[in-house]
Amino acid sequence: MLRIDKLNFAYGDLKVLWDVDLEVHEGEIVTVVGANGAGKSTTLKNISRLVRPGSGTIRFLGQDLGRLQPHQVVEAGLIQVPEGRRIFPEMTVMENLRMGSYVKGTRGDRERNIAWVFELFPRLREREKQLGGTMSGGEQQMLAIARGLMGNPRLLLLDEPSLGLSPLLVKNIFDILTGINRQGVTILLVEQNVYQSLRISHRAYVMETGRVVLTGQGDELLANDHIRKAYLGM
């Protein structure tokens, strides 16, 4: 579904991605784990075309993303829930959700999708009229995911959804992601919370200093010595 070949990228003179290969198949949850600065978020930014393209190719459903503008990537069904939630602070919960279905082809499903995300996150229904900027971090994260779902994603990219949340809330969010995946949404997750994310993933990639150093099934990696030492402290 998504296939990245030999992606190289630099911020000015600082090279941050080295020959990254990555693949996501339809129906999967794939996680990219790694420490801060390993190049995970930069990889997602490249997929969503938020940065000038580096070398290498990114193909989604056979289409070369290299030629597209950021908004066209979204129109193709590839939606990113960005790091730090990036809720529109001066807009209500409902307005934020409406922006999630801004793309023309998704507006017709707006009412149905709102009902769906309110079912997933009942908290949002209670906060419908509240301004996004006044909500707690956990609520904002729920809103960010819900807003992403409003656009009928074929593939949902999530950048550090667990950042700054309590362990209970993290578990809650990850359970919901599993549920969304069962309903047919393919997920590419970027996480520093290695244990929780590997637990729910079909496959995972480990990135260190801009390179993919390890790849395998979620449970395989959880049993891997290097992972256990470097990321799980065992």
């Binding site: 969503s48 950021p70 939606i79 990113q80 990036r86 001066e90 656009g151």
Partner: peptide, 13 residues
């Protein structure tokens, strides 16, 4: 309010 987030909604900024 947030130019980059707007792009991620499919808005042609």
């Amino acid at each position: 309010q947030d130019r980059e987030a707007a792009q991620l909604m499919g808005i042609n900024v």
